[in-house]
Nucleic acid binder design. Structure first.
Length: 881
RNA sequence: GCCGGAGUGGUGGAAUCGGUAGACACGCGGGAUUCAAAAUCCCGUUCUGGUAACAGAGUGUGGGUUCAAGUCCCACCUCCGGCACCA
């Protein structure tokens, strides 16, 4: 193998050839970084710390472009911050529990642990080829007992504090495979393997009281000014704090009470029925003597409990035949079973005011229930209750003693009246529901609980932790959890009384692991404690980077967990992530064939000949194998199922990591989706080649002599303008990198500058010195994005050591000054000319010059000037008619 | 359905605080180099009219505010993300 150039092992010299080859350079530099622990960091109280974190990957076995994009964004930020002089920590690890390992186990007959561990090895080596500035000493995998033991311990602490409880909740039950299915395993209401109609089943599960911290989770969002506005809004809406009244309807001829929450107690006098969930005990009771009702309740079990499914399904209901007593009027209203009322949300019952709630209105219309208007519009607006519900606030009518009150007054008055009679109370309610953490799956962290007939649910004592998940298991076709069939796992004795007892076989939701990994990175290898004082140095995370799809669940659970850890004295801050950057998806072209019968068959673009028209659009595509035509389906998310993914490992081999990184950062701003383009990658490579060649030619011109120091005073006008451009570019790139995170425009500005350097005639030693400043600065500014080639060029420029330890360039204010500025001249808002004026010209002077501009005159000569507007440094607008 | 976001040339995108629409790149067209090709370099490239200068139109659709709107306001259309057991 021949090397175009070769580093000396100490990074002290390089023989630069005319053309750039990534092959040897990248591997050499990566090895240097790893061997010399360049990115391993320790706590240094004298330096400003910077914790840069990208969401850790699920070890699927194959790196995809989404990963490359995510980790490159983080890496660019980490390197940039290090060049700002900060003590930067960028860790990496594995979100290693989860469903895909179980699927692989069924498919390939490999135990999930073995499959996962192999994937981690493969993916680590793929990740390292991207050239990330990662401290690999901190690596963790959530499926290792030394990680998950701490969340088991923490769970038992929470249990003792009363923040954990057990209640029944619905799951998707596959009656054929006799197993619980994840939502994604239910397709059109059927089990993905068995094709059996899935039922909703109620089983006992563990919950964390996230609603206890609802107010704090909401209020502390105001601390997160480094988060995108949209994510804050989504979290606010998700938490959905509302103030209302919790009130009781008594069930006629019974001791039972139906407790309901309403945000509109002012409409209480308009209640004409009460709706309860199909699983509600009262519904089940009523069904005992009512076969039709029983059948309806059975049907309701077939609707998936996902909110989206609930929202679009047909609203159905049936009368129970029982009645509830209105708390104020004492009148009887019918109790209906409704398929849209969730048992697991609130008390499983709602009061219905069809006149003033659209969903209740539609239900009442469908089942011919009475509609009683109790709110009238304020002012002249008339309300037609027969067309739709009137949901605004207004003035109470037909409401007995409350008639005439405004909605706001009635809210308090009715709440007081209920309270005085002990029938209700003002309450704060959240849309947010408590976090169900039980999963009936194998590949997860065992929930550390032992069930004893005498003592109940007993937490596993600290000394017995961790409860280790057995890794040598055999999966059967149904996908049921193997540990549920392993007596050697679940048979145990009660820690309290010593009698025979049963271990919990459910495992934690994998969001449990991802809720605190960012903190554990700060205290690696501590087998005495979950976290230690090192976490106080690093936390909070200064910059968190990950997919927008995690905007709600993961980020909310992690914020919640952080507050729980704070209350336990494990961390000192209120919030885990000071700044958040949400990256968009990676898209690629998709093609499919549509067989006569059956579903679309997706074809990988690599298997096709794609014909473009003369405008470069996809015209048609045919199979490489037999020339048969396929259909172009536009851009969609890269995925296995659509076969439109590209393999980063192959691309790195072909183009190099720098080219791939450069393209990923250049193609779109990080928060937008990014379209994959083969020719775009080639364009990125061309740019690196041009940069390399410019530097090569420059160094050739210099020969053995080193560049003179630049004398800015002696530059001619063109040279000064070019130098001004350089320092403007420094300002722009610095802002793009640190504040805006628009790496695409930072790169574009560097390209623009290099284009000018290529066109410029540098004559004389001082001009050559200017070119040296230009190229050297470009190399430094591009180094966070393309660290390998820039390191090589840095050495070629005659420097020793690491470019990542160079200070970031600062713009020279004196280079930015200019004597003349160009202004646009508009007439009636339309651009008609351009003028050059002195930078300090007065307004009148500018207008006078603008008025003499030939093309401007054409548009104003037969008109009267009514107004002139001068925007400093930008434009002049002359209003004339 | 609910919550959040996005729509700009042939394409990805730029225009940061209401002030030059289309930076930068891809693609395409033309040229140079070459025996030829690849690679590289140079020029052109929103649309319409015009040799050109220039003019008119133009940022999903329809209205509005303003000297000035891709940017602000109202209504709508389409696409994307999330909706609690995919991660």
């Amino acid at each position: 193998m021949s090397y175009y150039f070769k580093f000396s092992p100490d990074l002290k010299s390089i023989t630069m050839q005319e053309t750039y080859s990534h092959a040897s350079i990248e591997a050499d530099i990566q090895k240097y970084w790893l061997d010399n622990n360049i990115f391993n960091v320790t706590e240094d109280p004298d330096k400003e710390k910077y914790y840069c974190l990208s969401m850790f990957p699920y070890p699927s076995g194959k790196l995809h472009m989404g990963h490359v994009r995510n980790y490159t964004i983080g890496d660019v930020i980490a390197r940039f911050q290090r060049m700002q002089g900060k003590n930067v920590m960028q860790p990496m690890g594995w979100d290693a529990f989860g469903l895909p390992a179980e699927n692989a186990a069924i498919q390939n007959n490999v135990p999930p642990a073995e499959w996962t561990n192999k994937n981690i090895v493969d993916m680590r080596s793929q990740l390292q080829k991207i050239g990330l500035a990662v401290d690999w000493n901190r690596e963790l995998a959530t499926c290792k007992p030394d990680y998950y033991r701490w969340e088991q311990w923490f769970f038992t602490r929470l249990l003792k504090k009363g923040l954990v409880y057990r209640k029944k909740a619905t799951v998707n039950w596959d009656p054929v495979d006799q197993t619980v299915l994840a939502n994604e395993q239910v397709i059109d209401g059927r089990g993905w393997r068995s094709d059996a109609i899935v039922e909703q089943r109620e089983i006992s599960q563990w919950f964390l009281k996230i609603t206890d911290l609802g107010d704090e989770l909401l209020n502390d969002l105001t601390q997160l000014d480094g988060w995108p506005r949209q994510v804050i809004t989504m979290q606010e809406n998700w938490i959905g704090r509302s103030e209302g009244v919790q009130l009781d309807f008594t069930v006629a001829d019974s001791e039972e009470v139906l407790s309901v929450f309403t945000t509109r107690p002012d409409t209480l006098m308009g209640v004409t029925y009460v709706a309860i969930a199909p699983q509600h005990p009262l519904a089940l009771q009523a069904a005992k003597n009512n076969a039709t009702l029983g059948q309806f309740i059975e049907e309701c079990k077939q609707v998936k409990s996902a909110e989206a499914d609930m929202a679009v399904m047909e609203k159905k209901g049936m009368a129970t035949g029982t009645y509830a007593t209105h708390p104020l009027t004492g009148k009887q209203v019918p109790i209906w079973v409704a398929n849209f009322v969730l048992m697991s949300y609130g008390s499983g019952a709602v009061m219905s005011v069809p006149a003033h709630d659209q969903r209740d209105w539609e239900f009442a219309k469908a089942y011919d229930l009475p509609i009683k208007a109790v709110i009238a519009a304020v002012g002249e607006t008339s309300v037609d209750i027969s067309a739709c519900a009137f949901t605004e606030k207004g003035v109470l009518i037909d409401s007995g003693e409350f008639t005439g009150l405004s909605s706001a007054d009635a809210f308090s008055k009715i709440a007081e009246t209920l309270s005085a009679q002990s029938k209700g109370e003002k309450t704060v309610n959240y849309r947010l529901r408590d976090w169900g953490v039980s999963r009936q799956r194998y590949w997860g962290c065992p929930i550390p609980i032992i069930y004893c007939d005498s003592c109940g649910a007993v937490p596993v004592p600290e000394a017995d932790l961790p409860v280790v998940l057995p890794e040598k298991v055999v999966f059967d076709e149904t996908g049921g959890s193997p540990i549920k069939k392993m007596p050697e796992f679940y048979e145990t004795t009660c820690p309290s009384c010593g009698k025979d007892a049963t271990r919990e076989t459910d495992t934690f939701d994998t969001f449990f692991e991802s809720s605190w990994y960012y903190a554990r990175y700060c205290s690696p290898n501590n087998d005495e404690k979950m976290l230690d004082e090192r976490a106080d140095y690093w936390l909070p995370v200064d910059q968190y980077i990950g997919g927008i799809e995690h905007a709600i669940l993961h980020l909310l659970y992690a914020r919640f967990f952080h507050k729980l850890m704070r209350d336990e004295g494990l961390v000192k801050t209120d919030e885990p992530f000071a700044n958040l950057l949400t990256q968009g998806m990676v898209l690629a072209e998709t093609f499919y064939k549509e067989p006569d019968k059956g579903a679309k068959q997706w074809i990988a673009p690599s298997a096709l000949d794609i014909n473009l028209n003369d405008k470069g659009q996809v015209q048609s595509a045919t199979m490489k194998t037999d020339g048969s035509p396929v259909i172009y389906a536009g851009m969609s998310k890269m995925s296995k199922s659509k076969g439109n993914g590209v393999d980063p490992e192959v691309l790195i081999k072909q183009y190099g990591a720098d080219t791939l990184r450069l393209f990923s950062m250049f193609a779109a701003p990080p928060d937008q989706s990014m379209e994959w383009s083969d020719s775009g990658v080639e364009g990125a490579q061309r740019f690196l080649n041009r940069l390399w060649r410019q530097l090569y030619l420059h160094l050739q011109a210099l020969g053995d002599s080193s560049a003179q120091s630049l004398n800015p005073e002696k530059l001619n006008d063109n040279e000064s303008a070019l130098r001004r451009k350089l320092h403007l570019t420094i300002t722009k790139v610095s802002d793009d990198m640190s504040r805006r995170f628009t790496f695409n425009t930072a790169i574009a500005a560097s390209m623009e500058l290099l284009n000018e350097v290529g066109r410029f005639q540098f004559k004389g030693d001082n001009a050559i010195a200017l070119r040296h400043e230009l190229l050297e600065t470009l190399v430094v500014m591009l180094s966070p994005v393309t660290p390998h080639i820039c390191q090589a060029m840095w050495v070629a420029l005659g420097h020793e050591g690491l470019i990542v330890d160079q200070p970031w360039p600062e713009a020279d204010e004196s280079a930015l000054e200019q004597s003349n500025v160009e202004l646009m001249v508009q007439v009636n808002g339309k651009l008609r000319g351009k003028i050059k004026v002195a930078a300090d010209a007065e307004k009148q002077e500018i207008i006078d010059i603008a008025m003499t501009e030939e093309n401007v005159l054409r548009f104003i000569e037969d008109k009267t000037v009514r107004k002139t507007i001068v925007v400093a440094g930008r434009l002049v607008n002359i209003v004339a008619n």
